[in-house]
Structures are given as structure tokens and as C-alpha cells.
Design a protein around this nucleic acid. Structure first.
Lengths: 288, 288
DNA sequence: GCATTCCATCAGCGTTGCTTATCGGAAGTG
DNA sequence: CACTTCCGATAAGCAACGCTGATGGAATGC
């Protein structure tokens, strides 16, 4: 289970071709073939069907492991390497779209900051591998509970804000005049599926016992204005923190009264606790 | 960053000796020395101080990554290997102490089950690497929220029960007659630190903003009766689900009214969702 | 002061893992 | 239906890697 073998296996599976994988990895086709053969010999089962090339069931399973594994490996290397290198100039902040509120933007130092908007899931990974020095993630959580982030590395988080969660809907919607709504009552409504920007629907469905919350329209971008426009146009409901949901023309934002969830924003940094308070001070004070 | 190098590095760090690590790993001392040198060369920084042998700051950081990394690697290998092997006889269930309620014990099939009680943190790992087919973990969570488990592998969980959380205290305690308590009010009380059996105190402290919940006495075993006896003797408070806290001689169990937490029990199984319902049926029906 | 322990280093050598070359089968083409 | 093309498997050769065994130097114990 050499990571090299794993890496060529995932590229072969992704490109569905031995030769293409060889080109991408800088190997010969022969080497790739031998890599796959070695893996299959070690694990005692075929991992790929050939012609057309695709993963076997055992291979599918291996792929589920391999992605996070290689990510973690890269994160570990990058982390330790960075300790030896001299401190970088400037500061790179990776943020999920909704986490980047006007208040945060206003608090950024005037110079020396690189801002990078990423899908929510990729923010911790970016911090882990050093693409960003700092991450800002948002998501739903139980009050004063931390967010559930994929643990690709020993990351430290610091809550920087909690807001009520609102349902955004066209102001012509029958429920638009309500003072509050329970999510369970909206299980059968049309929902926008915007995993990068908004809330992944499967999280909702999971909390609801696997029922309801079927996706109506899927949006794969990271632009909050597109999301609110889609909601305004009646393509489906979506959940947003109050500050992002308020004041969108043609929509009504109704607070979620149950279950008890808040929209939480967290600062993510690589390394053990203790340095995070300093980090926040860094950002707000304009350091790098 | 070959896992082999990583593995010898962690054993050297653990044993604080090159030669001892060599014996344990079945290498020569020379090979171990070369492994460490290779790692240090690759990462561009010393990872160990010699004489006495111990990790440098960069090494400490590497160790934080290496443990989960190697665990994940082993889990991946074991998982795929198991798909090729024939299904094992019997069923091994790994459980954290409190999760193993009398009700669960009664529901187990009469034969063919191996039961293994582990510290809470090790249950998911045991399932991931195949030491156990199934895990039963307990812990605190927001109502209807899943537990926060270390993700060593693509595990599937299924909630099997939620109970109110109670504070266990000697019946002579000034608060013993209360009908309910808020955790925040108990931040400065004496608490038992029993990470394997009860609730890790740092979780509480974290939820309380890093203040309070200082450990009074630490208990490293997995026996719930010892824990309740310690609480009865006044060595400190501890949190337990109602069923485990009720009826302990010499103690009072007071429900926690805030923050809103429940004691949750989950079944853990390796693999993608969909097979879990079948699993539960397996156990209850006596299959394996 | 001598012996012992422990890690670093070096030389030697077997194995590994890559490349180049070739083969066989499947799909596309006239 | 024959021919070409594409793609993956296999064989041979060779360089590099990674191990062992031996030696050296520094610290510790008797």
C-alpha cells in the first residue's frame, strides 16, 4: 500500500485510462500497469476492470479510502515543511462564500492579504496543505457546538460568530408571512441543492431521518447572489444566516424555530490550540 | 514521506531509542538510523534530538499527523483485504463502557459473539481496522445530532438511542435535591476525569469557552461501577446517561437542563450507508 | 581507566522499480 | 472482411534504492 501506488491507482480510475494516467504522472504506461498489478497482487483482488477501464467494487472501496489518505499525507508533509521554511510574506485567507460577510471583509487589513473563495468542504483542506494560512468556514450547528469539519489534519478552530438560520423564499410563497417555521414541515418543499454555497441537502435529509428534502435545482457555483436570485425566482428554498437572507428583493426570510440550529462561522488554523487567539489578533491588526 | 519511514520514526519517538525501535521493527539499528536521516533530509529539518532521544518541535508536529495517518492506512488495507477474504465466523462487537447497557447485553444473540470493551476513542479505530465487525459508542451530543467521532475511515453510523444526561453526585451534596442543573453553574465544581469511561473533561471545558471543569481525580479504566463509586465517595462529579446514573447507592442523579445535550448511543459499521439497517437486524436476529 | 552502550557512517550487495521493446486483443475503418 | 489503430500486459535490462554487517566516535557506568 505504497502511496505512490495509491496515487497512480486513483489517477487511473479518475482518467479511466492507464496511458493517460501515465502521461499525467510522468511515468511510462508500463510502469502504471505494473503499479496497478502490484496493488492488485497485494490486496488479493482485482481493483480495475479493463476495456473499458473502471473500478471494481473492491476498487470503489479503495477509492473512498485513498482520497482522504493522500490528502492527509500531503497535509502532513506541507505542515512540517512549512515549519522549516521561513515565514511567508502576506496572508492567504480561504473562505466559504457565506462566511465572507461584509463585516469580515471590512475587518481585513488594507494590504498583504490574498482572499480565496472555495466550496465549503475544501476550506479545511486548503488550510491543511498550506494553500491558505487561515480558513473561514460557515455551516449549521447546534447552538455553541463546533462545526463538523472533515479532519484532514490537526486543525484548530475558533468560533467567530453565530446567527439565526432563516429560510429564504419568494415573497409570494404561501408561508412567506409566517413568523417562524419548523424545518420538518418543509421536508416536502422544493429545495435548492447548492453544496458549495449553501447547505448540503443531504445533511438536512440525514437529520430528518433520510426522508424528504429532495433537490429541485442544483447550483454548483460559489456566488451567494446567484443563490438568492434562484430562491427569489422560485426555483426552491434555501437556508441562509439572517444577515445574508435579509433584504434580498422579492424574497422573504423566515426564521427557523426548530430544530434548534444556528448558522456558525469558524476560523480554522493549522496546528495545536493556543495560537489561534494570536491569529485572530493578527488578522484584525493587519499582521501577516 | 514513505509510511515505512513514518512508522519507524514514530516507534523511535515512542521508545526514545533507535536500537529498541530496530528490535521492535525487525530492522538493524543502521536501517533505523538511515530511515530517520532520510526523513530529516526530505523535510529539511531535524526531527529528533539524540542522546537522549526525543522529538524536536517539528517532530512533535509530525507525530500529530503520523498517528492518524498510519491508522487510516491500516484501515484502508484491512478494509479492502476483507472484501477479498471469505466472511468471518461469528461477530465481534467493540463497545465503549457506558454504551453497553443491560438492554444491549440482553439483545445479543446467545452464541457466536465476541464482546470487547474499549475506551471510547478506540472503538471507531477498532471497527476501521477490522478488529471488530461492529462498534457501539456513546457520548454527549445535541439532540438528534450525530456523535463526533474521529474519522479514520468511511464509517457509517446509526443512532440507536438517546437518553437525558444526569450529573452524578453524593447524596450529601448541597445540590443533590435539585430538580435540574445547568452545566455552566458547575464549572467550578470538582469533576472526575475519566476519558475512557465517562466524558472527556476537555470537551466540557471547550464548550464552556475554555474555562473551568478542572479535573480532580483521574480514572483511566473502563469500569462504570468504579466511576459511580468514585462519584459516591465525593471524589468529583461525573456525567452519565439516566439509565446508568439511576439507582447508585449513596448518590443522587440530577438531570442537566442546559445546555441542551443528550446522551447518545450509535452503532458504527465500516462501509457506505445502506448496509447498516441490515446490520442491526443481523445482531438482533442472532446472525453473523 | 576501561568496558559498555548507543547512534552515525561506510561499503557491499541483493532487490526493487523504472524504461524500452514487444506482444495480443479490441475497436474503429475502408 | 481485412487492415489499421489503440491500449494494456509482459519480458528483458539496468540503475538506484534499501537493507545488512562492520567500524568509528561520543556518552555513560563500574
Amino acid at each position: 500500500m505504497d502511496p505512490h501506488l495509491l496515487r497512480t491507482y486513483v489517477t487511473v480510475a479518475r482518467l479511466a485510462s492507464f496511458s493517460a494516467a501515465a502521461r499525467e504522472l510522468g511515468y511510462t504506461q508500463s510502469a502504471v500497469s505494473q503499479h496497478v498489478a502490484a496493488l492488485e497482487r497485494e490486496l488479493g483482488a482485482p481493483l480495475l476492470i479493463r476495456r473499458p477501464v473502471g473500478p471494481t467494487p473492491a476498487g470503489e472501496r479503495l477509492l473512498e479510502h485513498a482520497g482522504p489518505l493522500l490528502l492527509r499525507l500531503e497535509a502532513a508533509r506541507a505542515d512540517v515543511l512549512r515549519m522549516a521554511a521561513e515565514p511567508a510574506q502576506g496572508l492567504t485567507l480561504a473562505a466559504s462564500p457565506v462566511a465572507l460577510t461584509p463585516r469580515v471583509v471590512a475587518a481585513l487589513p488594507a494590504t498583504g492579504v490574498t482572499l480565496r473563495v472555495l466550496p465549503r468542504d475544501e476550506v479545511p483542506a486548503a488550510v491543511a496543505v498550506g494553500t491558505a494560512d487561515l480558513g473561514l468556514v460557515d455551516g449549521p450547528a447546534a447552538p455553541s457546538d463546533p462545526l463538523r469539519l472533515p479532519d484532514v489534519a490537526p486543525l484548530t478552530t475558533l468560533g467567530v460568530g453565530e446567527e439565526p438560520v432563516h429560510v429564504l423564499m419568494p415573497d409570494t410563497h404561501p408561508l412567506a408571512r409566517r413568523r417562524g417555521l419548523r424545518l420538518g414541515d418543509l421536508a416536502d418543499a422544493r429545495w435548492l441543492d447548492a453544496p458549495d454555497t449553501g447547505l448540503p441537502l443531504d445533511r438536512l435529509r440525514e437529520a430528518n431521518g433520510g426522508r424528504g428534502f429532495r433537490p429541485a435545482l442544483r447550483y454548483d457555483g460559489t456566488d451567494v447572489r446567484v443563490l438568492t436570485a434562484l430562491a427569489a425566482a422560485g426555483h426552491g428554498l434555501t437556508l441562509l444566516p439572517r444577515s445574508a437572507a435579509a433584504g434580498v428583493p422579492g424574497t422573504a426570510a423566515v426564521p427557523v424555530t426548530g430544530p434548534r440550529v444556528v448558522h456558525r462561522t469558524e476560523l480554522v488554523r493549522l496546528g495545536p490550540p493556543g495560537t489561534v487567539a494570536a491569529t485572530l489578533a493578527d488578522v484584525l491588526a493587519g499582521g501577516g
